[in-house]
């Protein structure tokens, strides 16, 4: 029994080391002064970070990414909230369509999506290929599955339909019911999927590179461009960038931990809980058969 526990410790230890080595290596490299023939750096310095934070291009790229994220996530919240609400409450027979439309982007990689987007928007009436506007549209679709799941689950948890019925009985209009009863109750549930979407778009490269490229330099494009310059500086960018992602996902984990007590499923792969639900059904079926 003891021997097998040693095996499990070894397995997990190896996995953790394997997963952390690239991160630790990059971190060390970003603060290393001289490091060419020792296991650990000979001297440490912060000059790469200082250099990075004095780079105008970095701030510009960061601002552009932020602009794209705020626009597309904002649009998504403003559009998807009423859409999902209206469809679940009034047109429930269309829920299948909504779900199909919302989940489809999950099966289509950006590289395929970009082919069609370039075709549609490079000529014809709306020529927005190469501008940030096409990215906002593409990003709206990219985060659709996450926003949809988040909003729909929140509406279900608070029993939105019954809430609206009750509010109407008490003399409120539908809009009032939505604004004063449903909305305040689901806002924290939406926060999680909003943050997930932000993290996802932060690390989005394929659309940005294919649709717009250097004409609107986002943080990822900036990073890709810097790959061939000083390794130390690029490490500093990677670490800065990754810290922001960690901050975002950390907040997500904390928020969902408070709610669900199962924090691990609640990352960006949350969508796959669909699959997990299937297994759970199956397992209970098995138990029932005993």
């Amino acid at each position: 029994m003891k021997a097998s526990l040693t095996f499990h410790k070894l397995m997990v230890g190896l996995l953790v080391i394997y997963l952390l080595i690239p991160l630790v290596g990059t971190l060390l490299f970003s603060i290393a002064g001289k490091w060419d023939h020792t296991i650990l750096p000979e001297s440490y310095t912060m000059k790469w970070y200082i250099e990075l934070f004095q780079d105008e291009r970095f701030y510009d790229a960061f601002r552009r990414t932020l602009f794209l994220i705020v626009m597309s996530v904002g649009l998504s919240v403003v559009i998807m909230l009423p859409t999902i609400f209206i469809i679940t409450v009034y047109f429930s027979k269309w829920e299948g369509f909504l779900q199909a439309a919302a989940m489809l982007p999950y099966g289509i990689p950006p590289i395929v999506g970009a082919v069609g987007l370039i075709k549609v928007y490079s000529d014809g009436p709306i020529q927005i290929a190469g501008t940030p506007w096409i990215l906002i549209g593409a990003y709206f679709i990219t985060i659709l599955p996450f926003m949809y799941q988040g909003i729909r689950n929140s509406l279900r948890t608070v029993n939105a339909v019954q809430l609206v019925d009750a509010a109407e009985l008490l003399g409120a209009t539908k809009f009032q019911a939505f604004r004063t009863v449903v909305f305040p109750n689901i806002i924290s549930g939406i926060l999680v999927s909003t943050l997930l979407s932000v993290a996802l778009l932060f690390s989005e490269f394929a659309f940005a590179n294919l649709l717009v490229g250097g004409r609107f330099e986002t943080i990822q494009i900036y990073l890709a461009d810097k790959l061939n310059s000083s390794g130390h500086l690029t490490s500093a960018i990677v670490i800065t960038y990754y810290s922001m992602i960690l901050l975002l996902t950390g907040t997500v984990l904390k928020l969902s931990f408070r709610k669900e007590k199962n924090p691990v499923v609640s990352n960006k792969n949350r969508i796959l809980s669909l699959f997990k639900k299937q297994y759970r059904h199956k397992n209970t079926a098995l138990e029932g058969e005993k």
Binding site: F205, L223, L246, N269
Partner: peptide, 9 residues
């Protein structure tokens, strides 16, 4: 956390 470490970085 490491599952977010992908792509260019």
């Amino acid at each position: 956390m490491t599952s977010n470490f992908e792509g260019i970085p």
